[in-house]
Every structure is written in C-alpha cells, then in structure tokens.
Amino acid sequence: MSPANLYFDEALAAETYHRTLWDIYWGQFHRHHLAVASAALVILMVLLAIAAPVVTNFTPDKVNFATRYQAPSSAHIMGTDGLGRDEFTRILYGGRISIAVGLIATTLGLLFGTLVGALGGFYGGWVDNLAMRLTDLMLALPRLFVLIIMTMMLRNANVPWLQSSGGIAAIILVIATLSWMTVARLVRGAFLSLKEKEFIEAARAQGAGNSRIIWKHLLPNAMSPIIVAGTLRVASSIITEAGLSFLGFGVQPPTPSWGNMLQNAQDEMLKGHLWLAIFPGLMIFIIVISVNYVGDGLRDALDPRKLQ
C-alpha cells in the first residue's frame, strides 16, 4: 500500500474534487508531448508574425536593386529576392497573411457549417433535407477547380474591399464557402443522436425552449468534434491558400503570402536561387504539421472515452 493511502490527505482530496472539465482536458492534452511542443511552435510563429515590425529592420516591399539575389547571410538570414527585398521580412509579413487567411476562413466555415448542421439535425424534416442537399451539392463540386473559378470571379468583381491587400477577403470567402461541409455533417450527426438523450428530455420538461436547448445543451456537447475538425481545418486552409497563391489565383503580389512567394520559385531555383524556393514552403510545412499535431492531441484529449 502506498503511503498516500495511509491517511486522508484533505488538500489532495479538495484538489481532486475541484478538477474542472478543462483541467481534465489539459491533463490529457499535455501528455501528448508532441502536441504541446507543436502548440508552442504555432504560438511562437504567430507572435513572430504579429511582432514583424519589431523583429526585422526591413520592410516587406522595399525594392532595392543593390541587394538583388543575395544568398542567406548574416545581413539577410533568408537571403533576398529578385527585387532585393529581404526574404525573412517577407516570410514574417507573409505569415501574417497566410495565418490570418487560414484562421478567418476556418472560423467562417465552422460557423456556417455548425449553423447548417445544427438546423438540419435539430429541426429534421424539410429543413434537414434542404441542409443535406446543399451539403451534397457542395461536396460534388471539384474543389480545386471551383476554388480557382470562384477566386477569379470575386477578385475581378467591382467591389473594392474584395480587392484590397492582394484580395485576401476574396480568398477567405472562397475557402470558407468550400470548407464547411464536413463540420455540417459532424454537427448534424451529433445533434441527431444527442437530441434523443434523456438530459434533453429533462431540459424540455423543465420548460427550456428550442434556442436554450440548442445553445445550452446540444452545442456544448457537440463541441469536441467541432474543435478537433476546426483545428485540422486551419491547416488545410493554409495549404489551400498557399496552393491557390502558388498558381497565381490567390493572394496577389506585392502583398506577400507564403504561397505567392513560391509563385516564381521554380524559375528562380532553376537560375540557382534555391533559397527562394525553400523557405516559404518550409514555413507552410512547419505550421501545417504543427497544427495537425495540435489537432491530434486535442482529439485524444477531448475523447469522452478517456474521461474518467
């Protein structure tokens, strides 16, 4: 018998008693060391991007022909590009765009997907029918092709706020429009099974209305899969933006994004300026794998089967 069990430790008991749900989640999450390290890395990258003007002395679009195509050195740690702009500075500012696009597009997609899934799952009938038809329709669209056609349409539309800062608002809208379906299905499934449970019946018996049941009872219980799917979606949105911008259909220069920094990389690297093809892609890779590991850790931590 271990010494701890020989006497009753009041402090320990109190601490155990007051463990909230979040403590339990955190306890599960921090066991996944890779996920914790990845979360730290993501936070670091976000902070560096936010603090870009403090971190670097250069500006992202200052053209300087005296410093064209310099290989990485102590003055320019990631070298310079064909217009003599400091690559590290562009990586920092590009990170702002890439991360912001990923986060905002995902949030919008999550909100819409949750709305569609919740309405369908809760009300059933023709509402559900409509919601699921819409979801099926969007899933039958060839994703990349439609992404490209839609960004072209929005980017060239005569709407100023869609054009500003390289057209990021247009990219965000397009990615969000094409990435809510998984969440909608998840939420619908969760709502369908949850709404038959006794605690919903109990809430109803106590006089709770539809909106209270949705907001206070159903949604919180459906939150874990939404959080996990949302986290993983941030990573795929970042890749999607990068892919579109790489092809020239995404964020428009001179606004830097990790994707459009790779746009001319193939020509540049064949001319021997390898660093211009390496760093932006490496950044995308690092943030995507880190976010995926965080999502993996969250999936383990939020798994109800692991809660005791």
């Binding site: 990573a235 890749i239 990068a242 892919g243 790489f246 092809l247 790779l262 990389a265 193939q266 690297m269 064949l270 390898l274 093809a277 390496i278 932006p280 892609g281 995308i284 890779f285 995507v288 794998i289 995926n292 590991y293």
Partner: peptide, 22 residues
C-alpha cells in the same frame, strides 16, 4: 505518414526538382 500529409505537394514537387534535377 504524418509528415507526408503535411507537406504542401506543390512545394514537394519543387524540392524533388531541386534534389533530382538540379
């Protein structure tokens, strides 16, 4: 496998050209 899923494929293509062509 986790790394493979996280690599942006267009960048992977560029890296392949750098290594096996350049």
């Amino acid at each position: 496998a986790f790394i493979g899923q996280a690599i942006p494929i267009f960048w992977f293509g560029l890296v392949l050209i750098i290594v096996f062509n350049v």
